[in-house]
Each structure stands twice: as structure tokens, then as C-alpha cells.
Amino acid sequence: MKKLWGVLMISMLSACASQTTQQAVEVEERLIGSGGVEQQASTAEGQGVNSNDATFHPLKDPNNILSKRSIYYDFDSYVVMNEYRALVLAHADYLRKNVNAGVLLQGNTDSRGSREYNLALGQRRADSVKNIMLLSGAKASQVESVSLGEEKPRAMNQDESSWSENRRTDIIYWGE
């Protein structure tokens, strides 16, 4: 139970962090991997794998737009809003220039309403990102879109901040 709350707290932290600095996201991703609140202090103090590296891979560089991986949506919408177009286009451009790279797009929804409709809606969300990427030069073989519907929520509460965090397409590169 404690562990679950740890993960939940981290998920919520990462929800906030995605709006602020990417450095924080980096740390939290490792925290999720190590899976416990107890480890927070030591990891945050810089014992993580990559934190001492002088340079980042473009996909990991917190100053690079490619490190941003989530596209958020309005309720019952799969429209990629203008504020996320630059992000999607940057990933499309990266795929066009790196033909050996590829992504899995996971569409998610908030927990309200129908599980089956949400499964289909998550698919439309992932597909909408895929379509922009393909139109911008990524190859179909580089982009796979799937839906998790409402089944794998990142934020667990029943309130607007959790719901909006869960209305999301995540971009996951092969090998990540």
C-alpha cells in the first residue's frame, strides 16, 4: 500500500513537473523505476545513472523539445491542440532524420464514462498524433499507435487535475 502511494505521489509530482522543468521529470522517471519513496532522497542527490553526464542525448536533453513526450486533450476530444503541434512536429522531424528510430504512441483517457468508448477514444488520440507525424515525413513503419483507454491511469484521483493528466498521448521511443 505504501509503495502504491509512493508511486502515486510520484505520478502526481511528474504530472506537475511536466508543466514546469524537464530536469524534474528526469529524476522522477528514475524514481518510478526504483519504485519507492524511501529512495527519493538518495536519487535526487545525484546517484542516478545519467545525472552526471555532461551532455544529453537529444531525446533526453531537458532543454530539447524532444524530451517532452505527452500531448494533452480536452474531454472527449482527440484534436491535437496548437500548443502541442510544435512538439509533435519536432518528433516527426527527428524520425525523418533518424530512420532507424521509431515510436510507440499510447493513447489514454480519463476514467469517466464508458471503458469501451474510452478504448476507442484513446486509439483516436494516438492516431491523431500518428497522422501528423506521417504527414510530416515519418514513415508508417516508424510509428505504431495503440490505446490503453482508461485502463492505465497515471493520476488516480477523481478530480479535474487527475482527469486532465490522464487525457494524454505518450510518445515512447523504441528501446525506452
Binding site: 464508458s114 469501451e116 468508448y117 478504448l119 476507442a120 477514444l121 483516436r124
Partner: peptide
């Protein structure tokens, strides 16, 4: 059965 390109389900 359905030919719609969007969502038909349930």
C-alpha cells in the same frame, strides 16, 4: 458491418 472511419463501438 460499419464503414464509419471514426468510432463505432459497444
Amino acid at each position: 458491418l460499419s464503414k464509419h472511419a471514426g468510432i463505432d463501438t459497444e
